[in-house]
């Protein structure tokens, strides 16, 4: 409090001096920078929102204009595919977290020298295209002893496994950054000396302090899963993106409407995840910064 007060006072004095000495120079120096800043900002806004506006405009070309949207509500496949994608997304997030938190924790605590290698492995999904991944999965798991693709549940499981792998780069990074913000060695040893075993350390000490990190990892994972197309198509899963692309052939206006609605719903789902992690956020950030 005192610090910021002093700073503001300091800035005030500086500003006063600057103005009385040489006001035009200061204005000149500032305005082009400000202009550039605004230009970039507006460019960015346009880049992000123009497609949305265009899609919206296109969806209104249906006759009557709102029919594309009412059709969504009447289409059970919309809810089924979006629901399926969300469920797959949440399962992916849970598996990814339960795999990567202990891994990242152990690497940081006991195998710091293995970190670059683990990091490299988690980055592989960026190097290996999803099409290669899915053919690998299918050729391995479509015959005995592991005939996953023969059943619906098995195929969904394969889909989730594929998505878990896709989530690695985002999840691992988020978790690793979260772990770096706390003194995991001391926290772990403090818990151990108080009698805690590994599972309790992970669940009661490490996980709660990773909430913010896990949230950002979960956001990205959900966004990827809802938008992923290749793996789902080849596993013949009726996920949302597949439904959306099929819709384009038969009902283009409705496709645009669905894209917009799903965009909104994904944001709501993320908001829901954020809500789950609220409350801890400020605590974790402040403690981490010390």
């Amino acid at each position: 409090m005192t610090g910021s007060g002093t700073n503001r006072l300091g800035q005030g004095i500086e500003a006063m001096q600057g103005e009385s000495l040489d006001p035009p120079v200061q204005r000149e120096r500032k305005s082009p920078l400000r202009f550039a800043w605004w230009a970039i900002f507006i460019l960015g806004i346009t880049y992000f929102f123009l497609p949305l506006i265009g899609t919206f405009a296109f969806s209104l070309r249906a006759v009557p204009p709102s029919s594309a949207y009412t059709a969504i509500l009447e289409d059970p496949k919309f809810f089924a595919s979006l629901g399926y994608s969300f469920v797959v997304g949440f399962i992916t997030i849970i598996i990814s977290i339960s795999l990567l938190v202990p891994t990242a924790f152990w690497v940081r605590l006991r195998l710091p020298r293995a970190r670059p290698y683990v990091e490299f492995v988690t980055l592989l999904p960026f190097v290996i295209p999803p099409i290669v991944l899915v053919f690998g999965l299918i050729s391995t798991f479509s015959r005995p002893p592991l005939p996953f693709t023969h059943t619906d549940i098995g195929s969904t499981a394969l889909l989730v496994f594929g998505y878990v792998v896709l989530s690695f780069p985002y999840m691992y990074r988020a978790i690793d950054t979260g772990l770096r913000a706390m003194d995991i060695q001391s926290l772990t040893e403090a818990a151990q000396s108080l009698g805690s075993g590994w599972l309790r350390i992970l669940i009661q000490v490490i996980l709660p302090n990773l909430r913010v990190a896990l949230l950002s990892g979960a956001f990205l994972t959900l966004a990827i899963v809802v938008g992923e197309f290749t793996i789902a198509t080849f596993l013949a899963r009726k996920v949302f993106s597949v439904y959306l692309s099929q819709l384009g052939d038969i009902a283009p206006y409705q496709q645009s409407a669905v894209a917009l609605v799903s965009f909104g719903l994904t944001w709501i789902a993320m908001g829901f995840i954020a809500l789950l992690g609220r409350g801890s956020r400020s605590r974790v950030t402040i403690t981490g910064a010390r």
Binding site: M182, D183, E189, A190, S193
Partner: peptide, 13 residues
């Protein structure tokens, strides 16, 4: 055995 660390190591959560 009780242990006290230089960094306090209190559980932040």
């Amino acid at each position: 055995v009780g242990m006290v660390f230089q960094s306090y190591a209190l559980f932040p959560n």
